[in-house]
Nucleic acid binder design. Structure first.
Lengths: 262, 262
DNA sequence: TAAGATTGTCTCTTACAAGAGACGCATGTA
DNA sequence: TACATGCGTCTCTTGTAAGAGACAATCTTA
């Protein structure tokens, strides 16, 4: 649903109804499928990415032939294909941080019983790269690949540590500063949070994304000072001070193993 | 290495040196990176896919901006990017068979100590979609995504069960019939093997890919009669008859769970 | 230090892909 | 039975992206 929003995000709101490059259309198609998270008819797809039907048919055919997309069960819907999975696995194989990070996260959630996540910046947005659900009855649903405004999260504050004010401003839109419950964050407060997180080496936020959880995050460094990712735990908001403290200790320990020269 | 072969496979040997569609170039780039399995300089990439340098630079920039590719550590090399990983995870999430198949394979290799694999047809070729190494000292290295000629494998025989002779011939080239050790398989024998495998519901090959292993495979059905994938075990060629038999039993049991109306 | 190779950027031309729209074929529904 | 809606394929035009090639900057190696 929510029509062309995915487009607006990824393609900078092209107002000109002029011709669009095929490759760009393809990138929009992929992004669109990523947001819908389900197979979709080609007609709807065309509407979704705001592309002419005939063009969409041509492109989809190419992509299906190439194996990047597949026709889904019923017959006339498309979704991601095997080849994207294979390429994704290649990425994991070539990326030590991700490979080891996934293991640490899985281990962490098993050890603590809490939902645990590995997060990274992905084209200027906060992205849950891997998550492992905890054992609590009400589990926090946070799908892999989900993108969330940076100011809503503890990880967001850490990922931006070390950046110039201008860079931060460029990454954060006005909308991003409005929390799900309607409260509006002040940009200056957010930037102050970032600076503080950078110094303390961890970050805790309470009741930002929803009223029932708090989020504990620590940075993972790819080089001294360079935050490449974060590991975080999502815990009930009424978790005691001491348990919170010990969980952060655990997180720091694990993140330390992942970091290179942190 | 092996210059434009990846191209020849994926793009049907375009002899015309005419203009090539950008999207096709991109697909070739992705395939090329998949075969090299490592970050590569843009100049080399251009050579590798047989594309003009200027074009390659433009395309790579688009792909890097989109997050499908990433500049690798040193600075001027590219490889797969985070976004492909995210799309790949989306594929897994949307694909019950793959998701559950991965688990079964992991479990199977832990249980038996043998290398275990999940295989599928991918654009007419046999592909190892997921593999889990066994505990043997000499481990058979078979990377995920590896593509092997169908006639070399037990799984290949099962995957083609139920297809017409003409379809089989179309998928198997002369080269595919030449085994790694130089022996040449007769097409008729191969087709007979396929028919037999279809009837018995499993397939064992000895010393085909190498002289020290044998491969036990069983089909996974996505619909009655439709082989969607295979699960297989790679075991030492001198594995006893009875152990082989019991492993096949185990395989069939597991594959049965995965199958839908098999 | 000069010659050679490579890397990233830019400009300009024209071959060709993106797109509009028509068409036939299924469905659905009044 | 007529009418509407959606799907997949085709044709034709024209705006534009692929590509050739020149350029300066950087790295080799002799």
């Amino acid at each position: 649903m929510q029509d062309g929003n995915a487009l607006a995000v990824s393609a900078d709101e092209k107002t000109t109804a002029s011709r669009e490059k095929g490759l760009n259309r393809v990138l929009e198609i992929l992004d669109f499928l990523h947001t819908t998270q389900r197979a979709i008819g080609i007609g709807d797809l065309a509407k979704g990415v705001n592309a002419p039907r005939s063009t969409t048919y041509t492109l989809v055919r190419s992509l299906v032939d190439a194996g990047l997309l597949e026709m889904a069960g019923d017959g006339n819907r498309v979704y991601f294909g095997k080849k994207l999975y294979l390429y994704g696995m290649d990425y994991v194989r070539g990326n030590d941080l991700l490979r080891r990070g996934r293991q640490e996260v899985d281990h962490l959630s098993r050890e603590t019983g809490e939902t645990s996540e590995l997060c990274m910046l992905q084209s200027g947005r906060y992205t849950i790269v891997h998550s492992s659900p905890g054992t609590r009855p009400f589990r926090i649903s946070s799908a892999t690949g989900l993108q969330i405004p940076l100011p809503w999260t503890a990880s967001g504050r850490l990922l931006l540590a070390g950046l110039e004010r201008a860079e931060i401003e460029a990454m954060v839109s006005e909308d991003d500063l409005v929390l799900p419950d309607g409260r509006k964050l002040r940009l200056d407060d957010f930037i102050a949070d970032i600076a503080k997180a950078g110094v303390t080496g961890y970050c805790v936020t309470s009741g930002l994304v929803d009223a029932y959880t708090k989020c504990l995050a620590v940075p993972v460094f790819s080089a001294p000072g360079k935050v490449e990712a974060t590991m975080c735990l999502v815990v009930p908001i009424d978790t005691s001070e001491e348990r919170t403290g010990s969980l952060i200790g655990l997180l720091r320990d694990r993140a330390g193993r992942l970091s290179i020269g942190g």
